[in-house]
Design a protein around this nucleic acid. Sequence first.
RNA 1: GGGUCGGUGGCAGAGUGGUUAAAUGCACCUGACUGUAAAUCAGGCGACGUAAGUCUACGGCGGUUCAAAUCCGUCCCGGCCCA
Length: 385
Amino acid sequence: MIEQIFKIQAKKNQSRKGILKTKRGAIQTPFFMPDATRGFVRSLNNNDLIDLEMGPMVVNTFHLYLKPGMELIKKVGGINNFMDWNNPLLSDSGGYQIFSLIHKNPKMGKITDYGVEFRSPIDGSLHYLTPEKAIEIQFDLGVDMMVVFDDPPPNGYTKEKISQAVKRTISWAKRCKIEYKKQIKKRKLSEIEKPLIFGVIQGGKYLDLREHCAQELVKIGFDGYGFGARHIDEKGNLMEEVVKTTAEFIPPESLRFALGVGTPQDIVKMHSLGWDMFDCVIPTREGRHGKIFLWTAEARKIIQAKDELVKLPKEFYQIININNEKFKEDFTAVDSECDCELCKNHTKAYLRHLFSSKEPSGGRLVSLHNLKFYAELMKKLREEK
RNA sequence: GGGUCGGUGGCAGAGUGGUUAAAUGCACCUGACUGUAAAUCAGGCGACGUAAGUCUACGGCGGUUCAAAUCCGUCCCGGCCCA
C-alpha cells in the first residue's frame, strides 16, 4: 500500500485543508509559492524566505536549463544544493514559456506536435524542448515537485486552436508520464525519493475542453492537476465558472494547483472553489515596481481575531503606489501594524526616495512586505474553521 | 578695447524661413504588471478648455517677410582668443 501523499484534513463546502508530503518535508495546504524562476526570488535571499515561512518556491526548467545550464547543476548535485535551499522546490516545466515567449511573439520559437523550438531570450540561440527532455531536466534539477510540459494558449484563441493545444497537452502528458517512470527506474528512486508530478488542464474558457482534458489526464494519473493558461478574462476578472468546474473534474484526493494565481482576491476565491496550491510573480514584481499590498483596517482585525476570511468584504486589501507624489512628505509607516523590515524601520517618504533614486533596496523592502502579506493571507486560509 | 562663437521648454541638447507648442535624452506625473524576455513597459508633461480650439512662447527691444526660434539692426549676458 502506497502511503498517501496528500491527506485532506478538513473540508468545508468546496475549500479544503490538508498536508502534502514531499521528500524534503510536509507542507500544509493551501499554500503560496514565491517564484524563484532563475534560482532566486529577485532581490531576496534564503534567510528572507525562511523568515517568511512560506515553504516551497517555484523554479523554472527552461530558465535554469539556459543559465547556468544543466551540466553545472548536475555537478553540484541538483538545484537545491546550488541554491543552498533545503526546503521543497517545485519546478515548472517550461510549458509556460510557450505562452509567454512564443504565443506572445512568434519570432521567439516554433511549436510542433513533437516539441518546441525556443529562441533564448538571453542570447538568441536556439534550443529544443520536448516533453521527455523537460522531465529529464526536472529530474536533474532534483526537485520535489514537477510539472508536465504543456501548451498554454492565450484565451483569445479560437476554440479550434485551443482544442489543438488540449490535444497536444494530453499527448505530451502521456509522454511525460512514460519518461517520468523511466527516470525513476533509471535513477532507482524509492517511493519516498521520487518527485511528485502534476498534469496541467488546458481548454481555455471552454468547459467541454477542460472536462475532456481533465478526464484524459486523470486516466494517465498524476499526483496533482494544475489549472493551465490564464484563469482571468481580458479585463482581469476571474473566470469563476471555468475555475470552479475544472476543480470538480479533479479527484478530491489529488492536489489542485492554480498555476500563476494570482492576486490575493483570486487566491481567496480559487481556494474557496477547491484549489490548494498557488504561485505568482505579483507580490515580488509589483513590489519591485512600488505597489504595496495592505490590509484594510477591518480585514486586519479579522486576521488577528481568527475570524472567517471568506466573510471579509470583497475589498479586504488595498494597493498603494509608493511612487505617487502624495507620499513625498508622508513620514508615517507604510503599515503601523506590520512588523516587516519595511514597516518597522522606514517612512513612506523614505521608501519613495529609495524608489525615486532607483535604489534596489526599495524593491527588496516592498517584495518582503508583499510576501509577508501573502504569507499572512495563506496562514489565515489554513486556520479557517 | 578688438575678434570670435554662442544665449531654445525644469536640465541637457536638436532645429537655421512655412510640414514647429518646437526632435531626442534626463527629470517630473499617472497607469499597467497574474506557471518572471519585466529594477520592465505604456501614456502624459506651456497656459486655459470636457472638447473642437484659443492664447503666450526659442535672451530684450525693433525691423524685413504673406510667414521668423530661424534673416537684419541694436542692446544685454556668457565662453574662448588677441591686446
